[in-house]
Design a protein around this nucleic acid. Structure first.
Lengths: 308, 308
DNA sequence: GACACCGTTTGTCCTGGACAAACTAATCTT
DNA sequence: AAGATTAGTTTGTCCAGGACAAACGGTGTC
């Protein structure tokens, strides 16, 4: 009844949904419309996706997240996909370079985890928490994502990377913590978003400045964000959106939250999905990058001098 | 197109799937078979679930996880459900008592997070990492789950709790780490499992004993576990299964992994789903509780003396 | 540049049927 | 009494193919 495990070297539709993040309905309708994926069938008529197609679907998913539309890519051959990949990656070559520069990217390997951990801690000690996050972790995370698209890094290595960064950042944040500080910042994501690194990086930028941060983790419903913010006496609520988050949904959700929440609580929104959307987000402070977090904090303090 | 946000005070089927963990197909078939849930419909004929029904579905989901079957509970009234709840909770009253005893459970509130954090750190300092995990964190986690079922704690408070425990444990583990130690233990979960606390607790038990642990995080495919274990020179692979994990799937997956992996690598399996399943898991060491982790470690070291 | 329009693309939802895996319970074996 | 078989029931997942509203891309207008 629970049938997530693939029989041989083929994946059930449920397993593909889990591994690619593409809904079952989407997989079926793509097959109908574009002729891809084209899974085999088992004795019972159920779809069996070969691993190559699952890999291709994962890649398509990422290209979609980077703004492409299905029409051009779902029917495309592997070569065409590779070509698109280049055009998608080139503009971000800077991030890649930064990641490679200090050799950290080479340590994102399953068998080099000890070195990765040591190197991350060393970089943290050398740079301090804020520079570490803004100049090392963030570019490295982008570089890992790109390396994955090129096939240089595997999915579990990306998970390992996330895991190691969490270890380092959570330790460092715990060491810096200033529970009585101001402003009090509540950090979380909307219910469909479960990328945790954005939250941790924001927290790591704020805590050394003396802000009192609390992370609710990911996937908090709007109503709960409101009650947590009001009940906890928070000054600011910070929301993080990954590149995969639909921009429209982010905007609607933020405006809804703004309407729900008392005016004296500031809302910050950060991450790829909301960058450059300040115009459409009245009453909300869009934080375009990690360094802008500091500016936003200064601005808040300038307006709320008594709270220091 | 993306329609996860509920319009008014009602939830779309996608939102209910997200919030309850019950698949869309399951929600529809329950409606057909048991007459519950009974959502309203919007102008377009799409289901709109009122919040009370979503709450009830969440509760049903947990009762299911605790071994009940749908026939008896999906059609049941709120009162009947409450009665079942008691019979489900009573046997575990010990855990509840332990959680309440030191008052930590009262701190699992959105507005008391600072106190919770302080109390957790204090308990850690007083008890040491291993006793803290086995005697405080684990019972408290069980107590929080039960308190949620009673309606004494909300979902976001449970998330907050997980978040805070992660902060404390990851800091402590980082402080104890012995990268060159033996055995080398790889920790992760199967692809359908995403509870992270089990992994962290296991790591927290092992690291003070001088084992070198590496957590891949959750949701690692079998093949990747194999390649990570072999490529990383690990002695032991530890898998964690929450109570919600289907026992059959755990057993099948573990046996498959055993067949995939070289014999010299030991496999440990822990968590509610595999407890008492040792008979059906030849070649795998079932670790029945956190304290048994230490026994398992001693046993391994007795058999592999050269590796010390 | 911002905004409103319009045809096209696209993801999600629907119904109702089917079936194998998981469970329960009763029976048989050691 | 504990374990293995068997038979019957429950239950989650999958399928097909149709439908539709929201999102998008381009064009024209202020």
């Amino acid at each position: 009844m629970n049938a997530p495990t693939p029989p041989e070297a083929a994946f059930s539709i449920a397993a593909v949904e889990r591994d690619t993040g593409l809904a079952k309905d989407t997989l079926r309708v793509w097959e109908r419309r574009y002729g891809f994926p084209a899974p085999a069938r088992d004795a019972n008529g159920e779809r069996l996706y070969p691993p190559e197609q699952v890999d291709k679907l994962r890649l398509i998913r990422r290209l979609l997240d980077h703004g492409r539309r299905p029409a051009g890519i779902v029917g495309a051959s592997a070569e065409e996909l590779a070509a698109m990949l280049d055009s998608c990656l080139c503009p971000q070559a800077a991030a890649t370079a930064a990641g490679r520069e200090d050799g950290l990217l080479q340590l994102v390997r399953l068998h080099r985890s000890v070195e990765l951990n040591a190197a991350l801690r060393q970089a943290l000690m050398k740079q301090g928490l804020q520079r570490f996050v803004a100049d090392t972790v963030a570019p490295l995370a982008a570089a890992v994502g790109e390396a994955w698209m090129r096939g240089e890094v595997e999915v579990p290595e990306e998970h390992l990377f996330t895991e190691q960064v969490q270890n380092v950042l959570r330790s460092a944040i715990g060491a810096h913590a200033t529970p009585g500080g101001r402003p009090r910042v509540l950090l979380t994501t909307f219910p469909e978003e479960d990328h945790v690194l954005g939250l941790l990086m924001a927290e790591a930028m704020l805590v050394p400045e003396g802000a009192a941060c609390l992370s609710l983790g990911t996937r908090t419903p709007l109503a709960d964000i409101r009650s947590a913010a009001v009940g906890g006496g928070f000054d600011i609520v910070g929301l993080s959106f990954s590149i995969a988050y639909p921009a429209r949904q982010a905007i609607d959700g933020l405006l809804e939250l703004r309407a729900l929440m008392p005016d004296e609580i500031t809302i910050w929104a950060g991450g790829a999905a909301v960058r450059d959307k300040q115009k459409r987000l009245p009453g909300i402070e869009v934080v375009g990058g990690l360094d802008e977090t500091l500016a936003a904090l200064q601005a808040w303090r300038a307006v709320h001098p008594q709270s220091m």
